[in-house]
Design a protein around this nucleic acid. Structure first.
Lengths: 95, 95
DNA sequence: CTTACGCGTAAGAATTTACTTACGCAATGC
DNA sequence: GCATTGCGTAAGTAAATTCTTACGCGTAAG
């Protein structure tokens, strides 16, 4: 399944999700670890992670009763590529 | 004033605004011209343009009673740069 | 087996968003 | 001058977003 740039943009439009993403850029973390870092509840983090997963920005693996979340750099590269394409008049790149 | 990546992301998170931006990637247009292209009213386009202007994604110049809108590629480059920075663990780039 | 932990989901409230129609104002044209 | 064009703003609304607390389920530990 190709990455949907629209979904990636929507996922990253929220400041809380951006904080999660920038944290995950430094390495995987569990839901609880993320929740401790920010001033929002754990369910809120869980809901944000669902959106990030749907956009394929974050990927999650279950290990025992923990869920390890890690960044998918491809989503960010796809976003960067899209932005560069739109900025240049080399006509390609729809949304 | 530096470009706020958060504002750029929020501006581009909406599909209608992305259509406006991709249209402007091919050259300037007036508010009315944009409104004719999409299935939304002219005031809606005007409101979207205001958000794009605030994010510095679009710049507008008044010529007589027309307003010519044009893309600011710097905003898209800033977005691309941010995305690449987050994707890579070269630790920099907050949001 | 029973308790504690980690986490997602459900339900609901408070905002925010993306539209609409109605209106008003400045620039052009006659 | 007066009418028309191009456009922004105001006000209202329906739907989506972002939280919260309460709850339930599976895993691990005692």
């Amino acid at each position: 399944m190709a990455i949907e740039v629209g979904a990636v943009l929507a996922a990253l439009a929220d400041a809380s999700r951006r904080r999660i993403v920038t944290r995950l850029a430094q390495g995987p973390a569990t839901t609880g670890q993320l929740a401790e870092l920010f001033p929002i509840s754990r369910p809120a983090v869980s809901q944000h992670l669902k959106i990030l997963q749907t956009a394929d920005v974050v990927r999650t693996t279950l290990v025992g009763r923990h869920r390890w979340h890690e960044l998918n750099p491809d989503a960010l590269h796809a976003l960067a590529h899209w932005a560069v394409d739109v900025a240049a008049p080399h006509d390609k790149a729809p949304a």
